[in-house]
């Protein structure tokens, strides 16, 4: 029975429902429904000794929805077109620089922490959205599995610390907040951005696409120069 896709689907829906109810009743910004749900499901699978593959067959259906969700990001983009046009230079410049800082900081921290070059290479595209990250990893001929892992951890961590970062470093403008979330934490960060506000969400969605393209461009440039 557990092998049926209905198991993974139903488990995800039930846990998401619980997370959503907690979020609604408790209204605490620090509570992250995605992190809560993911940990609860892992705990359930581990405690009842259910193989991950049994969960995956249903969970994959939910993941497939990320395609249409990306398409629908066009709607807030269209609605906030005027803001984008007005601040186009600052937004694009910030994202392109942000993408560079992501690559550079992975490289520097990777060396400082003594990681293998192969692992560092796989971690380079960790701040972009999964499909683009996979394309980058294949381009670099590195360990795609580690890339996907680091993308998920980056997005979750970014969404969880975002409000703390905004407060501590006084990032207050809604456009800046949105661009930060999309550039540093891709689509998981964009989910958080929509929780904060509509402008934040729209800017974050837009930043995913630009950051993805910028990361590919930087990597191509580095490869051309011969650094990686």
């Amino acid at each position: 029975m557990l092998e049926s896709p209905w198991f993974g689907l139903l488990l995800t829906l039930v846990v998401a429902f619980i997370a959503f109810s907690i979020k609604k009743r408790w209204a605490n910004r620090a509570f992250n429904p995605m992190l809560f749900s993911m940990l609860l499901i892992i705990a359930i699978l581990v405690i009842f000794e259910i193989p991950y593959e049994d969960y995956k067959s249903g969970g994959d259906y939910i993941l497939k929805m990320l395609g249409p969700i990306t398409v629908v990001l066009a709607v807030p983009l269209y609605q906030h077109h005027d803001k984008l046009k007005k601040h186009a230079f600052g937004i694009i410049f910030g994202i392109v620089l942000g993408a560079l800082s992501a690559l550079f900081s992975v490289y520097v921290f990777g060396l400082l922490l003594g990681l293998d070059t192969e692992v560092i290479k796989a971690l380079l595209p960790r701040s972009v959205t999964t499909p683009i990250g996979i394309a980058c990893a294949e381009m670099l001929e590195t360990l795609v599995g580690i890339t996907v892992f680091s993308i998920v951890i980056t997005g979750t961590f970014g969404a969880v610390v975002a409000e703390w970062v905004f407060q501590t470093f006084k990032i207050t403008h809604p456009i800046a907040k949105g661009v930060v979330l999309g550039t540093s934490a891709h689509a998981i960060g964009t989910g958080k951005a929509f929780e904060i506000g509509k402008v934040e969400g729209a800017m974050s969605g837009l930043s995913i696409a630009i950051a993805g393209v910028a990361t590919i461009a930087w990597l191509l440039l580095f490869e051309y120069i011969g650094i990686i």
Partner: peptide, 9 residues
């Protein structure tokens, strides 16, 4: 955000 739960798992 909820659609990312399986990726997290």
């Amino acid at each position: 955000p909820y659609f990312f739960i399986p990726a997290g798992v």
